[in-house]
Design a protein around this nucleic acid. Structure first.
Lengths: 203, 203
DNA sequence: AGCCTTTAGATACTTTGCGTTTCTTATAGT
DNA sequence: ACTATAAGAAACGCAAAGTATCTAAAGGCT
C-alpha cells in the first residue's frame, strides 16, 4: 500500500492495453468504444496508446486480431442441412459476429484512415478455422453421398461468413432469427452446393 | 438586389435540404457528411434541419430514400452469364453501391440511434427494380433453356445486392474489380441458380 | 553502484462536429 | 392588420479524437 507506482513497459504493457481494448469492445461495442476508456481500464493514458496505434480504428482491429478464434470443432449431425444450420448458428452467435458492428464502424472510418482498409480486408477474407470447417462439412456430405463430389472454390468456403455478416449489418444489430439462418441455408447455401456439384461433374 | 431576404418554408424548404444533403453525400461520402455543410449548402441553418430529422443518420437516409432508382432496363446479352455480369457490374458501379459506405456508417451509429435501424433494414430488403430485373434475367435464361424452370425465392433475388454490398464493405471503398464480380457470378450465383433449378425439378 | 536513454503516465490542450438554446423577424392564415 | 408559426443567425455545451508538454520511473550500460 505504499505509494510506489509500478510502471509497465514494452510487451507487457501492450498486452494489457489490448486486453482492455478487447474487454471494452465486448462490453460497449465499437460505437461507444473510446480510447480514453481503454486507457483508463488498462491503467495507463492516451498518449501511450497513440504511440502504438495511429487511430482508434487500428487499436480496435489490433485487439480483435489478437483473439485467436477458438476452434470449436466441426458439427457432425449426420445431415448436410443439420451441419450447416449448426455452423451458421455458431457463426451468427459467436465472437466473429459480435464484430460485425465493428466491421461496419471501421469501414465507415476507412475513408479518413485508408491504412486500416487493407488490414480489415485481409482479416475478412483469409482462410480460417471457419473455412476449413466448411471443407469438412462438405467433405462429410460427399462421403455420405448427400452431394456429388465437389471442390468448392475459396469464395464459397467464406460465403457463410459473408452471408451472415451482411445479414447482421442489414438487420442493424438485431440478433439473427432462426428463420433467417434457415433461409440462408435452404434458399442459398444448399442449392449452391448442389449446383456446384452438378456443374463440376459435367467437366 | 434589395436586402429583402426570402424565407422558404414547409415542403419547398424540405426539398432544398434533401437536395443539398444528397449532393453532399455524393461529393464527400457519409464519413465527411456534416449537418452544418448541408445547412450551408441549402442556405439554411442547423436548427431547421434538426426540427425535421432527429440525427445526421436520419437526414442521410431521408436524402437517400428520396432518390428514385432510375430503371435502366434489364440487360439482354443472349446468355445468362452475360446478363448477370452486366447486372452485377451495373449494381457495383451505380448509386446503390455508392451508398454502401453510408450503410456501414449508419449501421455503425445504429447502436446510439436504434430508430434508424428499422428504416435502414427496410430499404435494403424491399423488392426494387433490381429484384425484378433479376426475375426477368432468370426468366429469359429459362426461356432459352439455359436453366430448367425455376422460381427463385426472394432471398435469391436480393442476393446480388447483398453479395456486392458485402464485397464493397470488405474491400473498404476500393472499387470492385471485374475479377471479383466474375467470381461472384461464376462461383456463386450461376451455380446457385442451377442448384435451385434441379432441386425444384425433383419436387 | 551510479549514469543516461527511453518511455510511461499525468495533465491539459486544440479541433471537430453533433445536437441545443435563445432570440429576432419573415411568412401564412384568419 | 393581427397573430401563431417557424426560419435563420449566433452562440453554446459536450464528447471524443488526437497532440503537446512535462515528470519521473525502468532498465541497460559502464
Amino acid at each position: 500500500m505504499s505509494g510506489t507506482k509500478s510502471r509497465r513497459r514494452g510487451a507487457k504493457l501492450e498486452q494489457a492495453i489490448l486486453d482492455a481494448a478487447w474487454a471494452e469492445l465486448r462490453e460497449v461495442g465499437y460505437a461507444r468504444f473510446t480510447v480514453e476508456a481503454v486507457a483508463g481500464r488498462a491503467g495507463t493514458s492516451k498518449p501511450v496508446i497513440y504511440r502504438r496505434w495511429r487511430s482508434r480504428a487500428e487499436l480496435a482491429l489490433a485487439a480483435w486480431y489478437r483473439q485467436v478464434p477458438a476452434d470449436q470443432g466441426t458439427p457432425d449431425t449426420g445431415t448436410l442441412r443439420g451441419d450447416l444450420l449448426a455452423m451458421f448458428s455458431r457463426i451468427a452467435r459467436g465472437a466473429d459476429s459480435m464484430m460485425n458492428e465493428m466491421v461496419a464502424g471501421v469501414m465507415g472510418e476507412a475513408f479518413r484512415h485508408p491504412e486500416v482498409a487493407a488490414l480489415l480486408g485481409d482479416r475478412l477474407t483469409r482462410p480460417s478455422p471457419l473455412t476449413s470447417a466448411m471443407e469438412t462439412i462438405i467433405g462429410n456430405a460427399v462421403a455420405r453421398a448427400e452431394l456429388p463430389p465437389v471442390d468448392p472454390p475459396h469464395r464459397v468456403k467464406r460465403l457463410p461468413l459473408d452471408l451472415i455478416r451482411n445479414e447482421s449489418i442489414t438487420s442493424c444489430g438485431t440478433p439473427l432469427s432462426d428463420e433467417a439462418l434457415a433461409s440462408l441455408v435452404d434458399d442459398v447455401y444448399v442449392p449452391l452446393l448442389r449446383g456446384l456439384a452438378t456443374v463440376q461433374q459435367a467437366d
